[in-house]
Amino acid sequence: MSPLLDIDRVGMTYVSGTLLARRVVRAVDAVSLRLEAGRPEIVAIIGESGSGKTTLARMILNLAAPTDGTIRFLGTEVATIRSKRARMDFMRQVQPIFQNPFEAFNPLKRLDRYLFMSARRFAGARGAEIDARADRALHQVGLSLAEVKGRFPHELSGGQLQRAAIARALIPAPKLIVADEPVSMVDASLRMSIVNLFRSLRDELQVSIIYITHDLATAYYISDRVLIMQRGQAVESGVARDVLANPQHPYSRLLKESVLSPDDAGKPFVSANI
């Protein structure tokens, strides 16, 4: 069986600056990661701003093509997915959740329109099944269609809106979710509820999640494995508890020193702003 996701020495190079002052930037440099099919897990990709983690996420989502290396999803090289039908099938199975929920929705459009569109386009729902699929996904994140229907994004709190964005991603029943800093724009009081939601989705829906973050605390709490990036390179990876409890790379140790240690009960770090 092909792995769910196989990232093999992927790189992204681009040129910035003017003609007279051009600079070659290596945003991602030979990063590898593998997620097995049939074994749902949460893998946290950790790094500060500029580490390359979001660029890697964009390549996984086929929003940018790597300049070297390959990314394969269920055996198919992602960069070769070009036909409309193939792209739709890929988008059904690999869903994104972005950082700012207020940018994920047009403020002039009602939220239920997005949910219904996902049900029609990606899940093939028709008639009453459209409402049923949207309502089912909303219930999975602690909301209901009655709470969302007819409402505009500004009528929900940040936490509710991010939950609606997660529900939208769940409607096609994806095999993989790529969540890029999904709690950074949410009030601190609501972050753990959303983090716990991801854990329950992994267990109940058997979906794998790539969790992009600069927050070591939530990464420690949520993930099965971690990949730590610095300046485009993967400097350390492995089982989350092992890597974060006893980091080997100097950068990993620096990240750990920037937050408090977990207590004996295994709770997440108390402070986590890297």
Score class of each variant (00 low, 15 high):
residue 17 G to R: 12
residue 43 V to M: 09
residue 65 A to S: 13
residue 174 P to H: 01
residue 119 A to Q: 00
residue 265 A to C: 04
residue 16 S to R: 14
residue 249 H to Q: 06
residue 222 I to N: 03
residue 40 P to L: 04
residue 162 Q to S: 12
residue 273 N to V: 13
residue 42 I to R: 06
residue 117 M to Y: 08
residue 229 M to F: 06
residue 62 N to V: 02
residue 3 P to C: 05
residue 163 R to A: 10
residue 140 Q to P: 02
residue 98 F to W: 13
residue 13 T to H: 14
residue 99 Q to I: 09
residue 19 L to E: 14
residue 103 E to T: 14
residue 62 N to S: 11
residue 147 E to A: 15
residue 123 A to Q: 08
residue 135 D to Q: 11
residue 151 R to Q: 13
residue 118 S to D: 04
residue 54 T to L: 05
residue 12 M to D: 01
residue 58 R to G: 03
residue 244 L to P: 11
residue 141 V to S: 00
residue 66 P to Y: 09
residue 47 G to R: 01
residue 118 S to G: 08
residue 258 S to W: 03
residue 194 I to P: 01
residue 30 A to E: 15
residue 157 S to G: 12
residue 179 A to G: 08
residue 264 D to C: 03
residue 223 S to N: 09
residue 106 N to Y: 06
residue 111 L to R: 12
residue 86 A to G: 02
residue 116 F to Q: 07
residue 254 L to S: 09
residue 119 A to G: 02
residue 110 R to H: 09
residue 27 A to I: 13
residue 239 V to N: 11
residue 274 I to N: 08
residue 87 R to L: 10
residue 20 L to M: 13
residue 21 A to V: 03
residue 57 A to L: 07
residue 54 T to Y: 08
residue 137 A to R: 02
residue 144 S to F: 05
residue 37 A to D: 13
residue 99 Q to L: 10
residue 184 S to K: 10
residue 185 M to H: 08
residue 48 E to I: 00
residue 196 N to L: 04
residue 153 P to H: 12
residue 73 F to V: 06
residue 256 K to I: 09
residue 94 V to R: 00
residue 246 N to K: 13
residue 146 A to R: 15
residue 102 F to K: 13
residue 137 A to Y: 02
residue 164 A to L: 02
residue 51 S to K: 08
residue 228 I to Y: 07
residue 238 G to H: 07
residue 239 V to D: 14
residue 141 V to D: 06
residue 99 Q to R: 10
residue 114 Y to R: 06
residue 172 P to L: 01
residue 244 L to M: 02
residue 150 G to A: 11
residue 62 N to R: 15
residue 76 T to K: 15
residue 14 Y to S: 07
residue 32 S to D: 06
residue 6 D to N: 15
residue 195 V to Q: 10
residue 133 R to E: 01
residue 204 E to A: 14
residue 151 R to H: 14
residue 91 M to N: 14
residue 171 I to S: 01
residue 77 E to K: 05
residue 249 H to T: 03
residue 69 G to C: 01
residue 44 A to P: 02
residue 131 D to E: 14
residue 221 Y to C: 01
residue 251 Y to K: 00
residue 205 L to W: 01
residue 31 V to P: 02
residue 193 S to P: 04
residue 115 L to F: 11
residue 136 R to D: 13
residue 143 L to V: 06
residue 230 Q to T: 02
residue 28 V to R: 01
residue 55 T to Y: 07
residue 112 D to E: 15
residue 34 R to K: 14
residue 185 M to G: 06
residue 148 V to N: 02
residue 234 A to H: 00
residue 255 L to H: 04
residue 253 R to T: 00
residue 161 L to D: 04
residue 114 Y to W: 05
residue 247 P to N: 05
residue 189 S to D: 11
residue 153 P to N: 12
residue 162 Q to R: 11
residue 38 G to M: 04
residue 262 P to C: 08
residue 242 D to K: 14
residue 89 D to P: 00
residue 119 A to V: 00
residue 223 S to F: 07
residue 200 S to R: 15
residue 187 D to A: 13
residue 160 Q to I: 07
residue 12 M to V: 10
residue 9 R to T: 08
residue 117 M to T: 11
residue 51 S to L: 11
residue 13 T to R: 15
residue 101 P to V: 12
residue 11 G to I: 00
residue 249 H to K: 05
residue 207 V to I: 15
